[in-house]
Nucleic acid binder design. Sequence first.
DNA 1: TCCGGAATGTGACATTTATCAAAAAAACAA
DNA 2: TTGTTTTTTTGATAAATGTCACATTCCGGA
Lengths: 208, 208
Amino acid sequence: MFAGACMGSVSFYICAMHTLLLNHIARYVTLDDAAQQTFCDALELKRLRRYQYLLQEGAICRHDYFVIKGGVRQYETDAGGKERIIHFGFEDWWISDRYSLLTQTPSIYNIEALEATEVLQINKDALEALFLEIPLLERYFHKVLQQAFAIWQRRILLLQKSAEERYNAFLQDYGAIEQRLSQQHIAAYLGITRETLSRIRSQYAGKI
Amino acid sequence: MFAGACMGSVSFYICAMHTLLLNHIARYVTLDDAAQQTFCDALELKRLRRYQYLLQEGAICRHDYFVIKGGVRQYETDAGGKERIIHFGFEDWWISDRYSLLTQTPSIYNIEALEATEVLQINKDALEALFLEIPLLERYFHKVLQQAFAIWQRRILLLQKSAEERYNAFLQDYGAIEQRLSQQHIAAYLGITRETLSRIRSQYAGKI
DNA sequence: TCCGGAATGTGACATTTATCAAAAAAACAA
DNA sequence: TTGTTTTTTTGATAAATGTCACATTCCGGA
């Protein structure tokens, strides 16, 4: 167990499970050991089986989640029962319902594990408290959000284009995780039906 | 002239043009007078006539802009010459090409004044330097970005819905600025043609 | 006031995508 | 393996939206 591995001398409080996140942070800011320790202390590991929820519609989102293993999807179920995926989260990605987290109102989204998944979660209030203590930490989260924002801006442009263009862009951006997703999830992410996606794909098969 | 009004004793360095922005900041964090002064010193006023560009395709975006009067649109012109508006900016909104700003690569967007407009601009590097000096300032920008992100998340969901639903949501969210926009700009924002928008609107006329 | 250009509205038709139904293929469990 | 369920593919058809052409309205400048 990870918890066990964390016991013992002080130097072992930072566990293997934290390294992915600490490396991620190191790409943006340089935290000293004490700050790393303080931050890691606020993290909690959460394991999910496939189909298990990280967040369910109607609940208030109180955590930000960093995926260290596996993958999740964040989706809305509309009045007609159709699912629209607005975001995926795989290794090295932060995920949560930012709107619910910000306003502390019930979420309209579900976040569900696509496979066996492990995330590190941090409580919103705990994180905000840490920002006061460690300004560099806020700088990290700010930078990560800036990057995410830039990507989402691009996505908005994409959603205004044809089904085929969206799929091409998806392959470019998410080629690495394409094999881990079902067609219907890709379609739900692109805002098209699985039938349309299937037809686009079969066109390609002919061309290649 | 504003510049003139700013001359004289030290207590007048913060000008009328800054109050909208300072009030905006005050809604998120509390800056002391010195910090306000330092921040305002980094700002520059820019006036635009209608149709004038704040940013042109191909240029590297080096500023973040806060609109204090008037309005702008941020749009892409695609290969077929069709314009897609990804964002508007009116009073009390920050606007810029976050991707270009972040990566310092040429922008694919134009930002153009829709009417006579005044913005306060701040240089990216100057702002980052200020973040080190005034951590609360980074907190403010982080919070503003969080809020913008939440709104954009919602927009992505909307873009996956029907033309009519998008228009309804637009009226809800931007009812206040609807009269200041032309139909074709609204259509370009919603990702539909102006003909389709015109037809949706004429349906309503019948219902009311 | 009138004129000319831009924006908006309308109709006919084309294209894209969704919907529904069912078959084929793949994944999974006993 | 075999049987069962889920996912993907395929076809026929419907609905939504786009395109093109042109009429109408709106608006600012001479």
